[in-house]
Every structure is written in structure tokens, then in C-alpha cells.
């Protein structure tokens, strides 16, 4: 039956209201988990706070397991969900630039919004930076078009790329996450506690 809007169970007229409600849930969870603090977020790169990895990987695990289960129960048609198309060159270039942005700015876009919401001026400056950066990219687009469309593979999934089933990928992701949780807990004990 799902996705409900795509399959016509919910009128698209409701889209914006649903977006607002889901956004409230998203923002609430991010802020309550501590993602409104840049020093907490940056901790993931220096070993004094691994909240980012814990929240991020747990969330992906839950969604993956949920989708595999919903698919098994025929509650959702996974061929109808949006798969981000892969442009390998572009996504690697973008990821590397975002990595620099994360370490320098201490936020990513969603988390900076939550920082702004609780009154952080540095989050506001980061958000202003986003606006400038997107403007610069868009204006320079004719010059960087080749990178943007570089390495096109279409809307491929990891099951296509690695030739494994959805269930197996989910299982491997769960194992990888548990390993990451254990390793980061050990690292955290060895790094002196930073005063946040």
C-alpha cells in the first residue's frame, strides 16, 4: 500500500502539512539528541563525543530494518520509493567539500537549523554561509556542470552495486554499526573528557 501519497492513499493536497509535522519530529529529535551543539557534533572527529555516530547509525539501522520488514509484509512497494541517483564524481567531490565544511563549521545544514532555533549565533552564521555557498554554486554552474553530471550511474542501490540482497545488506550494516559502537566506546574512554 505504501508509499501512501505516491500510491494515492493520501491526497497530495496534504503534502505540505505532513511535511511540517514530520519536520517537527525531525527537528525535535535532532535537538533533543544534542545536535544543536557544534562542539558536541565536532566531538565525533576528535574522539570526545560519539553521539553523531550513535544516533546516525542507529537511525539508519531502524529505517533499513523497517523497510525490509514493510517490504516483506507487502506494506510498501520499494520500487516506488525515491532512490537518489548516483553521479559518482559529483557525489565524491561534494562529500569531500562537505567533510571540510563539517570540521570547520561544526554543523551540517539540518543541525545548524536546530542551533538557530535555540538561539545560537554561530549556527545562524553557518546557515547564512549555506545560502552564500548554494548561490555561488548555482551561479558558477555553467563552469562546473561537467563535474555535476560526472560519473553517472543512474538510481542504483547498494544491492545492485554489491550484488547482495536487501536483507543481507541490512544485516551487514547492523554488524558494522555494532562494531562502530564498540570501537568508539573504547576510543572515548581513552580520550580525556572535554568540558562542553
Amino acid at each position: 500500500m505504501g508509499p501512501l501519497i505516491t500510491q494515492g492513499y493520501i491526497d497530495p493536497e496534504w503534502s505540505n502539512l505532513i511535511a511540517l509535522i514530520l519536520g517537527i519530529g525531525f527537528g525535535f529529535v535532532l535537538e533533543a539528541s544534542g545536535f544543536s551543539s557544534s562542539r558536541k557534533l565536532a566531538g565525533v572527529f576528535y574522539g570526545y563525543d560519539f553521539t553523531v555516530i550513535r544516533v546516525f547509525m542507529t537511525a539508519i539501522m531502524v529505517t533499513l530494518i523497517g523497510l525490509v520488514y514493510f517490504n516483506y509484509m507487502v506494506w510498501i512497494d520499494l520500487t516506488k520509493i525515491f532512490i537518489l541517483p548516483t553521479f559518482l564524481t559529483s557525489v565524491i567531490v561534494g562529500g569531500v567539500i562537505m567533510g571540510f565544511g563539517f570540521v570547520m563549521g561544526g554543523y551540517c545544514p539540518g543541525t545548524s537549523f536546530t542551533g538557530v532555533a535555540i538561539g545560537k549565533l554561530d549556527a545562524l552564521f553557518f546557515t547564512a554561509g549555506l545560502y552564500i555557498g548554494i548561490f555561488v554554486f548555482s551561479s558558477a554552474f555553467p563552469l562546473i556542470k561537467d563535474i555535476y553530471y560526472g560519473g553517472e550511474l543512474g538510481p542504483v542501490t547498494l544491492t545492485d552495486t554489491f550484488g547482495i540482497s536487501k536483507g543481507l545488506f541490512t544485516f551487514l550494516f547492523v554488524l558494522m554499526s555494532i562494531a562502530a559502537f564498540i570501537v568508539t566506546s573504547i576510543i572515548k574512554k581513552k580520550v580525556k573528557k572535554a568540558e562542553l
Binding site: I97, F100, G105, V136
Partner: peptide, 9 residues
């Protein structure tokens, strides 16, 4: 950082 994240995204 925001400018870079804007471009990278």
C-alpha cells in the same frame, strides 16, 4: 563551513 557545506551539498 556553511559556504563549503552549501557548495558540497
Amino acid at each position: 563551513g556553511g559556504v563549503l557545506f552549501g557548495i558540497g551539498s
